[in-house]
Simulated assay, not measured.
Amino acid sequence: MQTKIYKESELPMNQFQELGLVKDNQISLSQENINALLSGGRTEILRLKNLNLDGEQIEEIDVKISVSRNEAGELELKQHPVYKQAIRPQALTLEARELELGIRENLVKMVKGEDGKDREILFEFDKETREFIATDISRINVPDLVNNQELTAAQKDAYRKGKEVSLDDGTTFRFAAAEKESIRANRIALIASIILDGGISYLVYHSLKNLSGGKNQNVESERLSEGYSTALQDFHDQLENGKAQKITGDNNEINQQKEETRSRGVSR
């Protein structure tokens, strides 16, 4: 789930410029990719051209990028190129092969950190970059509601551990660090909400990949569920009443989603 942990003003403009990702003094990425960075996630695959990195001329390279804080507390750009061969984490043995082959979508394992403390780590394999991703589950942001249904403690724990969570409206979703939205679902769209002291934060997702990482292409996945439609209406009501404290996504996109809900109908 995308909850912004960095400010856009903190993004290292000079490093984006080195990658040819600045135009007219603005980072030339889609808002979805910028949101992914600000949430501590990764962008989609980007094709970079005519780069000069450390004195080496690179005509073309496909990468995902992310940002993280360095020892000085500043944001630093990280590149995740498409590897010819995956480098397996030391913490994984036979499980690594299962992740690579897609036999398992993810797994949680207790790993000792640099501070000597044991932490539960969620391991995934990014098929696009052929890279293993390790996420401390204590740092995964979990929604309070999805499609207007409040998640139970058990569902929140399952989401944090990368397990599938099913709702009454037929929607099933799970956390996925490899995606720019950090989530996959059996429907192309869903709305997640976080309850805050001053109101509710709504996160509107669309064009989501299916639970296995492919495109949602069947008719059922394209139908907007009843829970989604109710959550979207609540979002607009809260916004009009000034109770929607934080909005993720472009207002034009959200209004378009509302119109699509009316025209396409809903399903359970």
Rank of each mutant, 00 (worst) to 15 (best):
E98K: 15
K156G: 04
T135K: 06
Q149T: 13
L99W: 09
L99V: 09
V111G: 03
M110W: 08
R104N: 11
D136M: 07
R97Y: 13
I103P: 05
L122T: 10
F123S: 04
L145E: 13
K84I: 09
V111M: 00
T135G: 05
L145Y: 15
T129A: 00
A154H: 04
N106S: 15
P81L: 11
E131D: 10
L92A: 04
R104E: 12
K117L: 02
E105W: 02
E120V: 01
I87M: 12
H80K: 07
F123G: 01
E150G: 10
Q85R: 14
V82E: 02
N106M: 06
I121M: 02
R104I: 13
K84P: 07
R119S: 03
Q79N: 14
I121T: 00
Q149L: 10
N141K: 15
Q85A: 15
Q90N: 12
V142M: 09
N141I: 13
I137A: 03
A134D: 14
G113I: 07
D118Q: 03
K127D: 07
Q155R: 08
Q90L: 14
V108S: 04
N148C: 06
L92S: 01
L151W: 02
K117H: 06
P81R: 08
L92I: 10
A153S: 14
A134L: 13
L151H: 04
A96I: 05
E128I: 05
I103R: 11
L94K: 14
L94R: 09
I140N: 03
R104S: 12
Q85M: 14
V142Y: 03
T135L: 09
Y83L: 15
E128M: 09
F123N: 01
F132R: 00
Q155K: 01
V142R: 09
L122Q: 05
I140T: 04
D144R: 03
L92G: 02
R88H: 13
M110P: 12
Q79K: 11
L101W: 06
N148W: 14
I87V: 13
A86L: 10
T135V: 12
A134F: 11
E128F: 01
V82T: 11
N148H: 14
Q149E: 15
L107I: 00
E120I: 00
Y83E: 09
S138F: 04
I133W: 00
E98S: 15
R139E: 15
L94T: 15
F125L: 06
H80L: 12
I87E: 15
T129F: 04
P143M: 06
I133A: 04
V146F: 08
S138R: 12
K117E: 02
E100N: 11
Q90M: 10
E131H: 14
